[in-house]
Write a protein that binds this DNA or RNA. Structure first.
Lengths: 338, 338
DNA sequence: GCCAGCTGTAAAATCGTTTTAATTAGACCC
DNA sequence: GGGTCTAATTAAAACGATTTTACAGCTGGC
């Protein structure tokens, strides 16, 4: 038995020879069908099928002037919020014939910087980015933009006239949580966030402070990224502070706080009320359904992608800043069993 | 105020001119530092920093003989199992200096085929793929392999001598669920799967049938992909069949079945026991903690990536087939409140 | 002083496609 | 029948890097 040596990929020249035309015509048959006679086109397509030709994207992009590739950069694909955002954006890109490259920052700012550099090396037409307020990331995105790429920021409400942005109003998100916790009679609130310089998290805290004023004490707990897996760390800090409510900067953290509190025998919401953020698909399924702030990742992703592609296509595109308002979904983790 | 026109990306020639060397030397300074004098190298690196030069990846890949890029193809990044698998693989690639392109099939087999074609057009050195048993996907992967790319299959236990594979023993996974359900006294079992020709799902059913023999009735429920969002569809089918247990082919489906049953007032596990598959991070956090079959996505992803990169590097690499055994994690959804 | 051997750099070829400019072949009109 | 136009195709240049090949400048041994 002979092993079939991997044969090198057939190039446009082999296709041309087989179809009895020149390489240029093959390219035209694929990219500008109107320029080539129907009969020839048929012959070329047949030759492509027979040879299994798949164009070398590197060569195409090197010469072609229009570039139908974009990058989608998310902080953490393991986080459902980012996953749906990315996926919604990708669908939009797909529909319009753009190739989206999904990049996962894995919660590490320097990895995100490396990914932006990767996208720059790919010479993508544009980038849809989350996490622009993380250290170094914004600067790198600016450099990309100066190079001519379209950049749309998600999750960073900005008034930067040089680009588009789509965001949720995180300050308001924090406010409605504050109001809700006051309503259910809480006066000692812990705010749990990842130890991370990330603007939306700061905004949520600011909103919380603003809504609460001096009607409640606020205690801030910062969990190092490395200890995120250990649910007891955050829960213990909350217990130590003697809080009667916890506001977590996202649902994932809230879930682990819920579990940590449960392990310590703390009752939710009787002893401590818990609020999350994002209202992901699991919030309502928890043992104690989680009160959370709903923001539609899908809407954000779609809108951002639409703006990005518009900017990639239109030479004189007008930048926009869109801010959506989140809303509170109250459940048992603050209301008790009703 | 003047708007800075986006200046085109500086090329290797500008860098060369600024450093007072030839373009070839710039390339050598970056890719084969040992060939260039230290002083020259320093000058080149300085010029690169000053110009903000980022190599055009298309041009590099076009000429360069070694290709340090791989593709990671998952069926569904929205599914936590696939997310952790992809991420673990990506970390391995990262560590070894490979650029991984993450591709999300979005649960659509033809989208997966398009993505494989995309990876082929990128001329990646290898692909780590899930879902090879989906219609069309396997064929497309074969074509890719014939072209010379390394392909490692995850989630498809195969004895194909032409490539590596890493998988969980899904038949055994089905068996341990069957045994467990018999142990807790169930005799009318529904197996819920997505309407999808996917080998692992069939294997789990086969294992279930094998373990149960004629000691219990098995009823198969196939949910169309389109109705996955509606939790009542699967739950109602289970209720209609009069089952006292449901085995769902993954945790996501189990969660929605749990919710559907709850909406209908069915008690879990008193009326119906529920078992999932994957044992993802939320299984233990549900209102009724979910009995599930644990398989380490991380282990699969890491191992597969390691094999893939080994194959990309080694000319004469020996193919391996690794199968891991899953184990059952029993919780309240089959045991009741203990 | 000559030549071999070695280093570091430069010049030129190359990768596979797209684009531009040039060419050919008909068609049409007066 | 000559000239103009248009449509279809081809030949060749271009894209921006890497790789190969050639060359210049030293070193050191005889």
């Amino acid at each position: 038995m002979t092993i079939d040596r991997p044969s090198p990929a057939p190039g446009i020249k082999e296709v041309a020879k087989r179809a009895g035309v020149s390489p240029g015509t093959v390219s035209n048959a694929l990219n500008r069908p109107e320029r080539v006679a129907d009969a020839t086109r048929e012959r070329v397509l047949a030759a492509i099928r027979e040879t299994g030709f798949v164009p070398n994207a590197s060569a195409s992009r090197l010469r072609a002037l229009d570039n139908r590739a974009i990058g989608i950069l998310v902080i953490d694909v393991g986080n459902l919020f980012h996953t749906s955002l990315a996926r919604a954006a990708q669908r939009v890109a797909d529909d319009r014939g753009f190739q989206a490259m999904l990049c996962d920052g894995d919660r590490e700012p320097e990895r995100m910087c490396r990914l932006i550099e990767f996208l720059e090396s790919q010479r993508v037409a544009g980038v849809l980015a989350t996490g622009s307020s993380l250290p170094g990331v914004g600067e790198r995105l600016d450099a990309l933009r100066r190079r001519g790429a379209a950049v749309v920021l998600v999750d960073a409400p900005t008034t930067d006239p040089g680009r588009c942005s789509v965001a949720m109003d995180d300050v308001h998100g924090g406010e409605i949580v504050g109001e809700h916790l006051l309503e259910v009679g809480r006066r000692r609130i812990s705010y749990v966030e990842i130890e991370y310089e990330f603007a939306p998290f700061e905004d949520r805290l600011r909103g919380l402070r603003h809504a609460v004023g001096d009607r409640a004490d606020i205690n801030v707990v910062r969990v190092p990224v490395s200890e995120l897996e250990d649910e007891r760390v955050a829960a213990d800090a909350v217990i130590a502070a003697g809080s009667d409510a916890v506001f977590c900067m996202n649902d994932h953290v809230a879930f682990s706080v819920l579990r940590g509190l449960q392990e310590r025998g703390i009752r939710v919401p009787d002893d401590v009320a818990v609020v999350g953020y994002d209202d992901n698909e699991f919030a309502s399924m928890m043992a104690t359904p989680l009160t959370s702030v709903r923001q539609s990742a899908q809407l954000l992703g779609e809108t951002a992608a639409r703006l990005l592609l518009e900017e990639c296509a239109d030479e004189d595109h007008v930048h926009q800043h869109i801010t959506y308002q989140p809303r509170l979904v109250a459940r048992a983790s603050t209301l008790g069993h009703s």
